[in-house]
């Protein structure tokens, strides 16, 4: 038996109230967080998602800020400064120092063009327009298209999904059939058809994308609605005679929010992708307007000789896509109660 000889005399007194209080206070009560706070805390722990969020914020600020203050006018043509490569002050690496290889020799393109004082961070295009300004401008257009289209598709998708799931029965079956039919044609084909009917242009692109990409949202929201519908608090609200609209806004939407937010993060990049593809095909935004798609298309033509003209817009496009995808992934993990720590 353990040696208990040297125990202090008062050891076997019942635990005092003070001792007990001390014990209780030792328990660091985990602060109870609401679902959203908890998700937010977990999101912040996800490095990829966090960096993406900051990057996206930065891109948004730059892209929309450039509407007020742009390095150059994105549409200002300078034929004499055409096709100048990237020149970033302080960086001597070939490709960023304003030099390019011509006839086997590396020359300073800026000197040759007589623009020694100027530096275009991303270079200029074939008309001498500042590529950085154009990329910012294009990003803005792409984002506007994607955001507006996503907003529409959110409204359509969420409403459709809630309605279908809430009604259930035949209405639901019919509404799901309609989605299946829409999904049986590749989205891009439908978008192209719609744009042909509406005449190419920014508005028709937005409408076309919005009209086609809500199906995913509708399906997810419907599935979730079906699940929530059976829950007790909803049943209670129904028996108490709350109106459907009120139930939808008070009980349904808050519980659908995580599904909606996550899906939105994947809808935005797909809208950006569609817009870029349309511009690339040649029925997207038309000149002198620019989007990331049109810039890519322009840059690709000269990729062999002036690779930077495609690399820059491609880079920005990929970063935006990547950031939205990572953020979507992070949000999905954050909202999933299974990934506790």
């Amino acid at each position: 038996m353990a040696d208990t000889a040297k125990l202090p005399a008062d050891s076997f007194k019942p635990m005092s109230a003070d001792d007990r209080a001390a014990l209780d206070s030792e328990k660091i009560a985990a602060p109870s967080l609401t679902f959203m706070q908890d998700a937010w805390r977990r999101l912040k722990k996800n490095k990829g998602a966090w960096v993406s969020l900051i990057l996206l914020a930065l891109i948004f600020i730059l892209a929309f800020g450039s509407a007020i203050a742009s390095p150059h006018d994105p549409n200002q043509v300078h034929p004499e400064y055409a096709n100048l490569p990237s020149k970033i002050p302080g960086i001597g690496i070939n490709g960023f120092n304003g030099t390019l290889v011509q006839a086997g020799q590396r020359i300073d393109a800026y000197k040759q063009a007589g623009a020694t004082g100027a530096h275009y961070l991303m270079g200029t295009d074939y008309l001498g327009r500042d590529l950085l300004s154009r990329v910012l401008y294009g990003t803005r257009i792409s984002l506007i298209i994607a955001l507006v289209a996503t907003l529409f598709d959110l409204t359509i998708g969420v409403t459709y999904g809630i309605f279908s799931g809430w009604k259930g029965g035949r209405v639901d079956t019919f509404m799901q059939r309609v989605i299946e039919i829409i999904l049986s044609i590749p989205n891009l084909v439908v978008i192209v058809l719609l744009i042909l009917i509406l005449k190419p242009g920014m508005l028709s692109i937005i409408i076309a994308i919005a009209l086609t990409s809500w199906t995913n949202m509708a399906r997810l929201v419907r599935a979730q609605t079906l699940e929530i519908k059976e829950q007790e608090y909803i049943l209670a609200a129904r028996t108490l005679g709350e109106s459907s609209l009120k139930i939808a806004f008070k009980h349904l939407l808050p519980n659908l929010s995580s599904v909606i937010i996550i899906n939105t993060m994947f809808t935005i990049p797909s809208a950006i992708f569609f817009e870029a593809t349309l511009s690339y095909i040649g029925i997207g935004i038309s000149s002198p307007q620019a989007s990331l798609g049109t810039l890519l298309n322009d840059g690709q033509k000269n990729f062999q000789f002036l690779p930077y003209q495609m690399w820059w817009p491609a880079l920005v496009l990929c970063i935006i896509m990547l950031a939205f995808n990572l953020l979507g992934d992070g949000l999905r993990d954050a909202f999933d109660p299974r990934t506790k720590e």
């Binding site: 990729f303 990929c318 990547l322």
Partner: peptide, 18 residues
Amino acid sequence: SILGISIPSFVLAVLLQY
């Protein structure tokens, strides 16, 4: 895989081609 999802196939096509 996340890069593969984020890089549009036409960008990849041009890069591969070149």
